[in-house]
């Protein structure tokens, strides 16, 4: 009995070893947490782009003032 179970365990181990693919973050995506990372990155870029647009608008204002002079 002990022999059978140990060989079975070995066979199982072998099968899982063969079935293993390259490790990807599948689990992370299933648990939904990757969206948190995406959210953080998107927020940072929203702030960065908001600043870029702000600078663009300010620049336009200064250009207008210069043209009126």
């Amino acid at each position: 009995m002990k022999k059978i179970s140990s060989t079975l365990a070995l066979v199982l181990l072998f099968i899982t070893a063969i079935g293993q693919q390259a490790e990807m973050a599948d689990q992370m995506r299933e648990s939904g947490k990757i969206y948190v990372v995406v959210g953080v990155i998107v927020l940072i870029f929203i702030v960065l782009f908001a600043y870029l647009i702000y600078m663009d608008v300010r620049l336009r204002k200064i250009e207008k003032e210069e043209n009126e002079r």
Binding site: Q21, A22, M24, R29, I34, Y35, V37, V38, I41, V42, F45, F49
Partner: peptide
């Protein structure tokens, strides 16, 4: 750029 950030992190890529 936002499409790149979101899709770049979430699409299926070859393992």
């Amino acid at each position: 750029v936002f499409y790149t950030l979101i899709a770049g992190l979430l699409i299926d890529v070859p393992a």
